[in-house]
Amino acid sequence: MAHAETKTRRRGGSIDLKVIGPIVALIALVLIGVALNPNFLSYANITNVLARSAFIGIIAVGMTFVITAGGLDLSVGSMAAFVAGLAILTMNVLTDSWGVGLPVILVGVALALVAGLVAGLINGLLITRVGIEAFIVTLGTMGIYRSLITWLADGGTLSLGFEMRELYRPVYYGGIAGISWPIIAFAVIAILGEVVMRHTAFGRHCAAIGSNEKVARYSSIAVLKVRLATYVLLGLLVGFAVVMYVPRLGSASASTGLLWELEAIAAVIIGGTLLKGGFGRVWGTVVGVLILSLIGNILNLTDFVSPYLNGAIQGAVIILAVVLQRKTGTDR
């Protein structure tokens, strides 16, 4: 426990390792990448890395709010798969009656967003109204959604009709000024997320609740509503990530979105958000997402280390990030 007089310091020091740590790590990774493979900084590679990061990234932005408010959501990966399956099924059915066209895609997009929102709402209500621990609730829904997508796909793969896929494809592969849509979407959501976290009452309330729920309640903050809102926001962002994901492969299966929840949580933690809540930063999460995808990318581009060791290296980075954060915080 921190005692008043022993900790009258900190912040006075020059640079906070907590702040620059993730950025330094990211820069180091880029330098390593460049040193190992000249193609690393090529337009094609960078675009590829960023676009693939977008799904996890968009979800991780929402996860930052959930974790900052002292919550957790393990269900996002399964939720993404289920929502994707639902959207694909619906679009296929509609294609039969409406024919191939924009309306079908619009309905698919709307359905994905609404389904994500509802899924987040269910998590949130179970956690805030029924009062079950977030870990338990989302562990449960994680299993439920994963099982539902397997069932919907009958153990196989749900695929969007070929013509529909061609029509929907540009949402992932297209873009403006050479920047693809997923990258733009990720950037916009990250910037909005950062602003909301740092400069709005909602962001401040999330941090207050995660820091000390009782203080928040005694400060007349509607704790349950704010907490519910974080899960709804995350669900909505999962829906949005699915909207960008479906045109990439045009299919969903039992292995879609596998381990996304862990990657999203890992990105949030690497970025400096506290797992126990009370402090969160969205830009850190973005850096965390990039660090995780760069590790995979670098391993793929070099023969140095087997790409099969990707998970091991990512795991080590996650642990290292938390150790470094704690080092600077021990005098608290």
Partner: peptide
């Protein structure tokens, strides 16, 4: 400390 102030803010 428990209900009044956020000590780390």
């Amino acid at each position: 400390k428990g209900a009044g102030l956020l000590l780390e803010k």
